[in-house]
């Protein structure tokens, strides 16, 4: 893990596993709308920074934080205040 550059990021695809622990559906295919700039797109396309003590997902448009997920041994903390709406596809 040495030599990492802190400005490198992954994407929302990597949230699929951690979020699968919490939700019954795959949230990465849901459309999230940024509370800051209004851009809407799949959660899979967010920019994910795994260097924090948790996962921080930012808007690919304005780079504001849209989702934060911190996992402790017996609890998960999910902060969605940067996410105005989350449209989750469900079978009709």
């Amino acid at each position: 893990m040495t030599g990492e550059r802190i400005d490198d990021y992954l994407d929302g695809n990597d949230l699929a596993g951690p979020l699968a622990e919490l939700f019954a559906v795959d949230v990465t295919v849901a459309t999230g709308r940024c509370a800051s700039c209004g851009l809407a797109g799949p959660v899979a396309m967010l920019r994910v920074y795994p260097h924090a003590p948790g996962l921080v997902a930012r808007c690919p448009g304005c780079e504001e934080v849209m989702l934060r997920l911190v996992r402790t041994p017996d609890r998960a903390y999910l902060d969605l205040r940067g996410m105005l709406t989350l449209a989750i596809p469900l079978p009709a």
């Binding site: 695809n13 596993g17 899979a44």
Partner: peptide, 28 residues
Amino acid sequence: EGEVSEYLTGVYRVGDPVEIRGPVGGWF
């Protein structure tokens, strides 16, 4: 110096158990 990949490509031997969660990801 990748702590997981160095294990899986070097130390890991056929038959060793690994813990896996998945499959995950529905976008890509």
